[in-house]
Design a protein around this nucleic acid. Structure first.
Lengths: 196, 196
DNA sequence: AGCGTAATAGACAAGTTTGACTAACCTACT
DNA sequence: AGTAGGTTAGTCAAACTTGTCTATTACGCT
């Protein structure tokens, strides 16, 4: 759990601090932690004994803010979690896979255009990172943050090549059916017609 | 929504059929659709007028099964959704990113080992796909399914190179601090000590 | 024929996530 | 001096997800 790590690093912190840090990392995008879930998570972690409330102060008559810190048990748990994420591979969940599995529902020309567009977007993203690393905000960030972005770049490069290759295949009119069944009834093409 | 697409393709279907198809695609891994959510999704889509109940038959005294098909409105919506996924890029959510942002919490030797291990696992996965494509189950599947797996392979190749490069950097003892602050107090290393 | 296992179909409570909302305070500008 | 707009801090109901449970039938095996 991301939030546990943040508390360990920033402690003592209150929810709003965590929220700001997460947003500044754009973590709402690549982790699944929306600001709304933070407070629930903090309370749940406290309940489990991984965090501990330190103080609850109130300035003027604003909402009270509760400050948390990590417990030894919480450190242990965090250690285990991190180790898990470092050593085990969780298959990535990507909505584009869902789209891809319905490729036959799209007119071929559109699929080709979309794939080329995707390649272009990926290239633009990669260029953006490169610029940021050389003269932008990335220079101010620790090395491992730069490495994170470079990991995206590395994956994207693979994907760009793939997009172009597959765009070519789709364009060439190659059948979607498995090799064995090339002669069989192309039911999918009919499905496409209905969709349109 | 994945499920809408499946219904459109397999209609008329009942929940259990959808579930089997999803499991056979391993979609519980890369989409976020666990078997438990299917029935709720079907009911919700029906309520929104994107699906329509066809029949509710009962064989013997088993649980009744309700069959669904897609409505014209549902087809429109599906079209829009698919188009969205094809043309817009949603940043991928990957728990490894979370792990990576806490790199300084790990002893350097362990990070290096974990990175090399990750590269090895990725290589193994890629080899597995290659074998499946040449003589395994992948040959029976439609081309775009093979392309899906090849997309994973392409991304993985980028990631393998990255793992090895970063492993080298971490091993070399390069500082995690940003260039500008190399002389400043290495607070993170201290944080690591506490973790340990 | 009898018995254990697997498949069929879905319900459901408990837990999580989310976006929208509140409400006070600051601050910069007219 | 007033006020529009942002920041601070967190609450909350509604929606969604999940794993687990139930109960029946089909199938294979001795």
């Amino acid at each position: 759990m991301m939030i546990l790590g943040l508390v360990s690093w920033m402690q003592p912190v209150h929810g709003y601090d965590v929220r700001r840090e997460l947003l500044s990392w754009n973590a709402d995008k690549w982790a699944n932690v929306q600001p709304g879930s933070i407070y629930h998570a903090l309370r749940k972690l406290t309940e489990e004994g991984l965090l501990r409330e330190v103080t609850t102060e109130q300035v003027g008559s604003r909402p009270a803010r509760t400050t948390y810190e990590i417990t030894p048990k919480g450190q242990d748990e965090l250690d285990n979690l991190l180790r898990g994420y470092w050593w085990e591979m969780k298959p990535v969940t990507d909505p584009f896979f869902a789209a891809l599995s319905f490729l036959p529902a799209l007119p071929r020309e559109e699929a080709v255009a979309a794939l080329r567009n995707r390649a272009a977007q990926l290239r633009a993203a990669n260029d953006g990172v490169e610029v940021a690393a050389e003269k932008g905000w990335l220079r101010e960030k620790p090395s491992h943050v730069r490495w994170m972005w470079e990991l995206m770049v590395a994956r994207n490069e693979g994907e760009i090549a793939w997009c172009e290759r597959v765009a070519g295949l789709v364009e060439s009119g190659v059948s979607y059916l498995p090799d064995r069944m090339r002669t069989a009834d192309p039911g999918w093409e009919r499905w496409r017609e209905q969709v349109d």
